[in-house]
Design a binder for these strands. Sequence first.
RNA 1: GCCGCCGUGGUGAAAUCGGUAGACACGAUGGAUUCAAAAUCCAUUGCUAGAGAUAGCGUGUCGGUUCAAGUCCGACCGGCGGUACCA
Length: 807
Amino acid sequence: MSEFVPSFDDKKIDKKWQDIWYNGTYFNAEDFSDKEKYYSLVEYPYPSGAGMHIGHIRAYLSLEVISRKRRMEGKNVLFPIGFDAFGLPTENYAIKNQIHPRIITDRNIKIFIQQLKATGFSFDFNRLVDTTDSEYYRWTQWIFLKLYEHGLVYKDIAYVNYCPSCQVILSNEESQGGKCDRCVSEVVQMEKKVWFLKITEYADKLLDGLNDLECNTRIKTEQQKWIGKSVGAYIYFPVKDTSERLKVFTTRADTIYGATFMVIAPEHPLLEEFSERIKNLDEVKAYQEKAKHKSEFERIELSKDKTGVLIKGINAINPLTNEVIPIFISDYVMITYGTGAIMAVPAHDTRDYDFARKYNLEIREVISGGNIEEEAYTDIKGGTLVNSSIIDGLEVKDAIIKITKFLEDNNLGEAAMQFKMKDWAFNRQRYWGEPIPIIYCEDCGVVPVPYEDLPVELPMVEKFMPSDTGESPLANIPEYVNCVCPKCNKPATRETDTMPQWAGSSWYFLRYLDPSNNQELASKEKLNYWGKVDWYNGGMEHVTRHLIYSRFWNHFLYDIGVVPNAEPYKKRTAQGMILGADNEKMSKSRGNVVNPQDIIDEYGADTLRTFVLFISDYEMSTPWSDSGVKGARRFLDKVWRLFPKVNDLNSYTKSLELIINKTIQGVEKDCETLKFNTAIAKMMTLTNEYNKQTQITRADYEVLLKILNPIAPHLCEELWNKLGHKELLVFEPYPEFDISKTVENDIPIVISVNGKVRDKIQITRDTAKVELEKIALSQKKIITFTEGKQIVKIIVVPNKLVNIVVK
RNA sequence: GCCGCCGUGGUGAAAUCGGUAGACACGAUGGAUUCAAAAUCCAUUGCUAGAGAUAGCGUGUCGGUUCAAGUCCGACCGGCGGUACCA
């Protein structure tokens, strides 16, 4: 004991235990083990050149703690990690520095693995997944072909951000604010035929499936809103003097008698169809052109000031009143939602109201209860239908039902549903992505690559610069483009677009179950054994897209019999962000980025882990603080310094029994509810309590090491080892608490007068109400406040307080 | 605009069901130890008054409900995140 130093050597201890863990099989998940399985999943990182961010550490630590705890609870834990390595930053870096993305990716992945290990994460590193590995994306392509086979893939026109000066298609990130990232010129919306996945076909399933997902309401509502189901009706408005009918979608069929004009999107096909009839075609064309050049940004900015053009020469007829009504084009109606056409009811829709006011159109009230002189009356709870013929006098909800029925019966419309969610534009004009396994043949048309020819590999070429035609770089690589038609063996060409970033991450959680299977994406047996992800943690920003996309793929794979569950995840949580010390989002440009490696170098991995978990509520965002790190280290040193105080007794010190049991109970609950900050606070309190003793027992100490182990495993393993244990803490049973020893016998009771605390007394637990009242009233301090006053009321909350109300 | 979260000491933050506001930590001040410093240990630390016991005030603002409000209700102000004319 004489050589005991007052502060542990983090470098030595970190290395020692990391070597033991990672050279051993401690964290390897065992397929088909008899133990109960537990699958914890964190969102795998994009291996950027900057290395790991403090945000990664926080994101992974929750389930790191849970996974280590589950192993101690006897579970067969699968806690995998991998890399979502396709993507723009790598490609851009590659172009700039003339290094192939493959080389950069491999280099970055290596750095990430090294950093993850330096932090002591208990990932199963034998199941690494890399989405850019052709043995992985072979199955991404396979799923795409399956989707194709089942009619869920189609080609259609999409509007992409195009920079006319660079002649390059830009991602949304590269064209923020409507300006090109590279040359700052205006970005235009260009039409392009691209691949779509019919995710909308799964909209209802994805909505219903949310019932089975355990998560907070925020996560649920964000997904619900993203899917955006709305129930209403299609109504057909005949186009005057033609046999065409203009189809509109509305959720307010009840307001049809108030429709005073129609609005169609600038891209609406009606304009093309009846172009000869349009008397002001030039004006219309000019408006269409203007709308095309409006970036999304501008459309939002200008949203309050509505513009439009009256189409002269074509009119619509209200199918119920036969009234002739004008048609406008305006970009406040989107071609991408509903039918791209609306019946405008200015009296009861704010957008139509604004438009009507601007162009002096009739505003006809059909629901009483508002003041349409002032604003549109959109409330659907109050109000009765007026000026509405067959639905006059009805309430809104009844009117909707009746009018929809009437429309259906008379073939003037039908009940309908719309989703805000759009089909998934599944393409990028980039090199560094999964090739889309499609071949174009002059004779056979679009031909899917046969399954046995997968993977379609990315060519390892030196030239992967963007083309100047808005096509993918792959289009410039003849040895890639030129191929043979699998059907007729004639020369053919390959699809040159690649898949979007979200492709690989839509099924990676399945590949972890069987990462090196070259026959199937994962074996049936393993899929069945591991089942659903038990707990999935990740960023709030992925709750809409990634979560929905991956649920979609999983639902599809379930429908074709590949996976055993429709829903892939049982439970989803999300961590809060760590901001810079200046309370701003961490970014290179702000210079407030914290590199976790610096903390490890200075204080060791356990300090980093402890502090990141201690900093605040896990689900809340919080600024970084350098000074707080020291506190975490100080705490761990205190635990270390307890070691010489440990005696050989194998039971808890009597006077510590209560706090030990309470701490186990509290830490257990806090960890399971992601309240790691309070869990650590409780362990700090216990440590401070131990510190006051001249001696503590081995049992006292060991229980602390066990509950602290998931958070600070290097230190705990070291101390556990120093106590003479041969086995590691990894599978040591997690401590249990004795509920009967978590409650004190003597408890403090607060006595207040008129709600103000005036005295505190110690009393035996469960003292009767009357008794408490009597004791409270007889306290000297209390008497000074009650003397000479009338006692109106006494409230007694057993084991808590007595409140005396006086006058 | 809409939806959600949040607003508590000098700082990060705690606070089951409405029941002792500020646990735990950082920082600060004073002391011990040291030749000195670091580290460590002890004490104090919401604000105001007081030597002190203690008293008054105090959870973004205003109002309400209640014996009792950080917590519930209403109106507002500020910050963050999501979303964007969704018919």
